[in-house]
Computed example of a mutant assay.
Amino acid sequence: MILTDVFNTVDEIENLSDFHIETAMVKSDDLMKSILRVTTDHGNDYGIRLSDSSQVLENGSAFKLSDGELLVLSVIPDEMIVISPKGIDEMGELAHMLGNLHKPVQIADGTISLLFDKVVAETLRARHIPYTVESIQLEQPLRYADLSL
């Protein structure tokens, strides 16, 4: 079966308990794709081909399989480097360094998060910049800066 339209996200479905749910685990990178093949926890294979280019996949995207059945995407947690800069100067240096390495990042709540990378970890260690490595389930994929806006 080919699914072409996201029905909703599980957080926005009021009567979620009325549905039988199949879950497909996907990598965070898969959320950027408009064509995807998934296998659910029930062993069923589905194709996803988004018909509308404005639709985006995210953790919890739900597709209607029938009136009482949903396919829900769940993102596999990624190993992430999480940095909490001590101030604006360190934030600027980190932004410059990560930009030069062409790493997509997520900035939220005063932290910079990016997928684990040995080169970045070694660079942070060499510069005595504290960081943690955490397993994080991304809601949306990491993206490169969009300078066209």
Rank of each mutant, 00 (worst) to 15 (best):
I2R: 06
I2D: 03
I2P: 00
I2F: 11
I2A: 03
I2K: 09
L3A: 06
L3G: 01
T4I: 08
T4D: 11
T4R: 15
D5Q: 15
D5P: 06
D5I: 15
V6H: 04
V6S: 07
N8R: 15
N8A: 14
N8C: 12
N8L: 12
T9W: 08
T9G: 13
V10D: 01
D11C: 14
D11P: 05
N15C: 05
L16E: 02
L16G: 01
S17C: 12
D18Y: 15
I21S: 08
I21V: 14
E22P: 12
T23D: 03
A24S: 13
V26I: 14
V26C: 10
K27G: 13
S28Q: 07
S28I: 07
S28A: 14
D29L: 14
D30W: 04
L31P: 07
M32T: 13
K33A: 12
K33N: 10
K33F: 06
S34Y: 10
I35V: 15
R37N: 07
V38Y: 06
T39N: 15
T40R: 00
H42C: 08
G43C: 08
G43Y: 05
D45C: 09
D45I: 15
G47L: 11
G47Y: 11
I48D: 05
S51K: 13
S53F: 00
S53P: 01
Q55N: 11
Q55F: 05
V56W: 15
L57N: 04
S61D: 00
A62L: 06
A62E: 04
F63S: 02
K64N: 05
K64L: 06
L65K: 05
L65G: 02
D67F: 11
G68P: 04
G68H: 15
G68I: 12
E69L: 07
S74L: 11
V75S: 06
I76N: 11
I76F: 11
P77A: 15
D78Y: 04
M80C: 04
M80Q: 02
I83T: 00
S84V: 13
D89Q: 14
D89M: 09
E90G: 09
E90T: 15
G92K: 12
E93G: 08
L94S: 06
A95K: 10
H96N: 12
H96G: 00
L98Q: 11
N100M: 12
N100C: 11
N100G: 13
L101N: 11
H102T: 07
K103H: 10
V105R: 04
V105L: 04
V105P: 00
V105C: 00
I107K: 14
D109S: 13
D109V: 13
G110T: 00
T111S: 13
T111R: 12
I112T: 07
I112N: 02
D117K: 03
K118M: 13
V120W: 02
A121F: 03
A121T: 07
A121I: 13
A121M: 12
A121W: 09
L124K: 07
A126S: 14
H128T: 07
H128W: 02
I129D: 02
P130S: 09
Y131W: 10
Y131L: 06
T132N: 08
I136K: 02
Q137R: 01
Q137Y: 09
L138R: 02
Q140E: 06
Q140A: 00
Y144N: 01
A145T: 05
D146S: 05
L147N: 14
L147W: 05
S148F: 03
S148A: 00
L149P: 00
L149Q: 05
